[in-house]
Design a protein around this nucleic acid. Structure first.
Length: 342
DNA sequence: GCTCCACCGGAAATTTAGGGAA
DNA sequence: TTCCCTAAATTTCCGGTGGAGC
């Protein structure tokens, strides 16, 4: 029943982007100077999750590379590569200049030097989830090098600007800003129908079901496609020739759980223990968290380190904090959005 | 208004981990 | 193996914040 599984994967970039013509054209025009071997402006792409920020950024750069020979592109997920070293390493790795760079014994400056010395084709650097960078100075470094055009992707402008220093803020304010909104239900339906058409056999899923997925996903294309993918593979495993309503209902829950699971996998064992304490006992204050935590592990870290864990998990949207001082309490983020799938 | 105190988070110091060279 | 180097993680220290109780 699954014709082409790639189409249903999260990172898939389609040949045609639906309902984002204005944004695609806007971003293309910002990068346009590159086609004449001239430096391009930095672009900032903002919008809620699942609005298609990553998708159109990759789409536009891929199309650019089809049109022009001497253009490179590199994609950095700053959430996974949140240190300056890892982000720089990822870029240099894509450019093929990391042959003799080793993770542990190469100074930071060496990576910066490599970047400055780079004299290959002009390169578009997509910095996804850029507000997750621990040290945003990498934006500054790249911004100064005419060889690189940067696309900064973040949820909101405020989140991005709150992380970086004033000098850079004033520079970025003059950058081109592509704003994206959540998809409407009918737009999401079109996206799903296109994916179903290429990814699944005919009649595996009916329009009414696609509408219900669009409705349940509340404007989030990543979630919508995740639900479709989960439903298709579930039906495939169960040897059904079409997706039943029961399967669809289960898949909506599973797809949400999967997205959260991905975040949890990036936590260290100690961080995981802290998360589980908050999940089981929350809302709960920091002292109590540390007491439970010290009981649960053999070699507990200090309160200060646990505070760092907690603020990190708040940033990752796994936990939420209420109160500012002595009244502060942590609880897990409730991802159960009312689901109209039934 | 004052003091206490749990908590926050920045900065610097220290420890840990992992790779290369001799 | 041992020594040396560096990034990353952690700890130590500490000033700042803001409820709670008086």
């Amino acid at each position: 029943m699954i014709r082409d599984a790639r189409v249903l994967r999260a990172g898939f970039v389609p040949r045609e982007v639906e309902h984002r013509d204005a944004e695609v054209n806007h971003l293309s025009s910002v990068l346009e100077p590159i086609t004449n071997d001239e430096p391009a402006d930095t672009a900032i792409v903002t919008g809620p999750s699942g609005a298609g920020k990553t998708c159109i950024s990759k789409f536009v750069t891929e199309r650019l590379r089809e049109e022009v020979l001497d253009v490179e592109a590199t994609y950095v997920n700053c959430w996974r590569n949140h240190t300056r070293f890892r982000a720089l390493y990822q870029i240099l790795d894509d450019l093929g200049t990391t042959i003799d760079i080793h993770r542990q014994s190469t100074p930071h400056d060496e990576l910066t030097n490599r970047l400055q010395e780079y004299d290959g084709p002009r390169t578009v650097v997509i910095l996804d989830e850029v507000d997750q960078l621990e040290d945003p100075s990498i934006i500054y470094t790249l911004h100064d090098l005419p060889q690189f055009a940067i696309i900064c992707i973040a949820n909101t402008e405020e989140e991005l600007f709150s992380q970086i220093d004033d000098r850079l803020v004033s520079r970025l304010r003059s950058s081109e800003h592509v704003r994206m909104d959540k998809y409407h239900d009918d737009q999401l339906f079109d996206i799903l129908r296109a994916r179903a058409k290429w990814g699944l056999d005919e009649d595996v899923i009916v329009d009414d079901q696609l509408y219900r997925i669009a409705d349940a996903a509340a404007g989030d294309a990543r979630l919508a496609i995740g639900i479709l993918r989960t439903a298709a593979s579930k039906a495939d495993r169960e040897n059904c020739d079409r997706i039943t309503d029961d399967i669809l209902l289960d898949s909506a829950e599973d797809a949400r759980a999967q997205i959260k699971q991905k975040s949890l996998e990036s936590l260290t064992p100690h961080q995981r223990v802290v998360y589980e304490i908050v999940r089981d006992h929350g809302p709960i204050g920091p002292s109590e968290i540390h007491e439970h935590y010290s009981d649960d592990v053999d070699d507990p870290r200090t309160k200060r380190t646990v505070r760092t864990y907690l603020s990190k998990m708040v940033q990752y949207n796994l936990l939420e904090a209420e109160g500012t001082s002595r009244d502060r309490e942590y609880s897990i983020v409730d991802s159960k959005v009312a689901s109209p799938m039934g």
